[in-house]
Simulated assay, not measured.
Amino acid sequence: MPHEHLSSRFDADINHVLSKVFEMGGFVESQVVNAMQALNHLDLDLVDRICADERRLNAIEVEVDEECINIIARYQPAARDLRLLMAISKTVTNLERAGDEARKVAKRTRRIAEDGNAMAINIAEIALSGEMAMTILRRALDAFARRDTGAAAQILRDDDAIDDQFRLFVYKLVKYMREAPRIIPIALDYLFIAKAIERIGDHATNIAELVIYIVKGKDVRHVSREQLEREAFGQ
């Protein structure tokens, strides 16, 4: 009975900290959505909201890390339970950094809105990559919630498409800057935004890799795509 009581308390504490992770994940998703809307509409009110809300993300990250430390000290978990706690801590770090990238998009959007050349550059690739980043971040959190290694592996494949859009936009920016040097400052702002979106995709893939780590016990951060998929699908 005492052992069962301790186990139920541990499960309750884990579920509580997981609820904080998904609260943070939903908040980061809204930050990314707002950042893309602010960019598409040059909405400075949204820019202000994104920058102001960053403190909330930082507070949740600190709170989750403290709770993970307390759970480890209290229960001394091993094996998969310990991997889960380690993955939770790394997940909130990636979420906080994704939120930072959303804030970078917002801050560059402010500069673009104040520039008279804002409409001189077609940003179709940025808009598309932003939608992709939002989608894989949401899917990464869903894979984490369900411990779905197959879904995690698919996210890692799909991130390549965001990288492709980034490269296409860079090539286009170089052409714009050669043809119209006056737009170089705003082109660089758009370049920073494109890179921030690419990094949001990278943080989503980091979370997907952590799903495989939790379930399979394998660190797949620096392995080949073929080896990663073998681990994910148990081949």
Results as ranks from 00 to 15, higher is better:
F166E: 08
I71V: 11
E209V: 02
G116I: 04
M86L: 14
N122H: 04
D189N: 08
E226S: 13
K175N: 12
A143C: 02
L188S: 08
H203T: 03
A73H: 10
A73D: 08
R199Q: 08
I50T: 02
N58V: 04
L44Y: 08
G25V: 07
F169N: 03
R139C: 00
A127F: 01
G217P: 01
D189P: 06
A79S: 15
H203A: 04
D53Y: 10
N58M: 10
C68W: 00
S89N: 12
N40K: 15
T149F: 01
R97T: 06
P181N: 01
K107W: 06
V21L: 15
H203I: 08
I72L: 11
F233P: 01
E66L: 12
C68G: 04
A232V: 05
D11N: 15
V33N: 15
Q165M: 09
A161H: 12
V215T: 12
S30Q: 14
V211S: 09
L128N: 07
A208F: 03
V215L: 05
A143E: 08
R103P: 06
H16D: 15
E131G: 05
R103W: 07
I123F: 06
I162K: 00
D219A: 10
E231S: 10
E131R: 10
L141H: 06
A78H: 12
E23S: 14
I186E: 03
M134S: 15
K216C: 10
G201L: 05
V223D: 00
D13W: 10
M134L: 13
E63H: 11
F169W: 04
S224T: 15
T205I: 00
P77I: 00
K218S: 11
Q31P: 05
A145P: 08
S89T: 12
A102N: 07
E179L: 14
Q31G: 01
R146M: 12
F233S: 09
F169D: 02
G234K: 07
R80P: 10
M36A: 00
E229H: 07
A194L: 03
E229C: 03
A124L: 05
L44C: 03
D163V: 07
G99M: 09
V32L: 08
D148H: 03
M134E: 14
Y190N: 08
